[in-house]
Amino acid sequence: MGKIIVTGASGQFGGAAANSLLETCAPEDLVFLSRTPEKLAHFAERGAIVRQADFDDPASLPAAMAGGERMLLISTARVGTRVGQHTNAAQAAAAAGVKQIAYTSLINADRPGNPAIVKDDHFATEQAIRATGVEYTFLRDSQYSEAVAAAMAIPALQMGVKPDNCGDGRVSFVSRDDCVAVAVGVLTQDGHGNQAYPLTGPEALSIPDAMALVSQLAGKPIEVQHVDDEGMFEYFDSLGVVRHASDIVPDGPIPWSSDDMVTFGMSIREGYFDEVTDCVERITGRAPRTLRSVLEQYQHIWPK
């Protein structure tokens, strides 16, 4: 059998997937890629193959992909320009003889009318992977529970209020841990070729429901303020968040734009995240984590 490739192995998702694969696979069968391979020294010490790969430099990719049979393509952080990066990676993998590409996508990325602009990058990448003719596995993640536990909970607890444009729309929050476990499953099991899996937690909750859980666990009140989309833009303006992905400062303190977040909220409000599936349990053999369990895990970093 050929080797399993993990792109972006120095990131959170990629690092977790790499660690998990090292527990189940021979290290010499694993290839971990990064623009900064020095960050992967700890994996090299465990016997894994570490290679430099820059998706903006297609000439660097054939050597990086050589010998691979299955690849986990983790979406990069460059909203707006990452489709070209992903396409370079998928085409190089196909040229190197990779037989299956698993890609970290977004729930309902393929549904017409979904207003979340982030879905444009994901759907375009899915199309680019299909165009290579390589077997695909699309891992269409719901919103991460960890995002609620940290990026959402901490400012809400600090301010006592949470401006929100999601209305009563519900989200099947899913733990990143479960999404990683599914990714490892589809790379190490057979039968996942040409499949798209919506990955969700065990229940769908509204943002007010989620904030009520945070409030209960922290013992501090949080008022969810329902605002319209323009009010949400004004809130992000007050935090110094740029409005458009094209204005994001590379390696700056805030790697996202408000039009990304506001349209994400619109997508929740319009029901595109209100879906509960059994994909996590079917592929990993265990029930997905609840939002409460992830909140409890992160509770120690919350403001007192």
Rank of each mutant, 00 (worst) to 15 (best):
K162Y: 14
K162F: 15
K162G: 09
P163F: 02
D164T: 08
D164P: 02
D164R: 09
N165E: 07
N165G: 13
N165A: 15
C166F: 00
C166M: 14
G167P: 14
G167F: 05
D168Y: 12
D168K: 14
D168W: 02
G169F: 05
G169M: 02
R170C: 00
R170F: 00
R170D: 02
V171A: 07
S172N: 07
S172P: 06
S172M: 00
S172A: 15
F173K: 00
F173S: 12
F173G: 12
V174M: 11
V174F: 06
V174G: 08
V174Y: 01
V174I: 15
S175M: 08
S175R: 10
R176G: 10
R176Y: 03
D177Y: 14
D177L: 14
D178F: 00
D178H: 04
D178Y: 07
C179L: 08
C179A: 14
V180Q: 00
A181I: 02
V182L: 12
V182M: 02
V182Y: 10
V182W: 02
A183F: 04
A183M: 14
V184A: 11
V184L: 04
G185H: 09
G185P: 10
G185V: 04
V186K: 00
V186M: 10
V186D: 08
V186G: 12
L187H: 05
L187G: 07
L187W: 04
T188M: 12
T188P: 08
T188K: 00
Q189E: 09
Q189I: 08
G191M: 06
H192Y: 04
H192G: 04
G193R: 03
Q195K: 14
Q195C: 13
Q195F: 05
Q195R: 15
Q195Y: 11
Y197P: 09
Y197D: 07
P198E: 10
P198S: 11
L199R: 02
L199N: 03
L199S: 03
T200S: 06
T200Q: 06
T200P: 09
T200N: 05
G201A: 00
G201H: 01
G201S: 03
P202D: 02
E203P: 04
E203C: 02
A204Q: 02
A204F: 13
L205W: 01
I207Y: 13
P208A: 12
D209E: 06
A210L: 05
A210F: 02
M211D: 01
M211C: 11
M211P: 01
A212L: 04
A212G: 14
A212I: 01
A212S: 15
L213W: 03
S215G: 11
Q216F: 03
Q216E: 15
Q216P: 05
Q216N: 12
L217R: 06
L217V: 13
L217Q: 12
L217S: 08
A218N: 07
G219P: 00
G219I: 08
K220V: 00
K220T: 10
K220H: 12
K220Y: 08
P221N: 12
P221G: 12
I222S: 07
I222L: 11
I222W: 04
E223N: 11
E223R: 15
E223V: 15
V224T: 13
Q225L: 15
Q225W: 11
Q225N: 12
Q225T: 13
Q225E: 13
H226C: 05
H226I: 11
H226P: 12
V227F: 01
D228L: 01
D229W: 10
D229E: 15
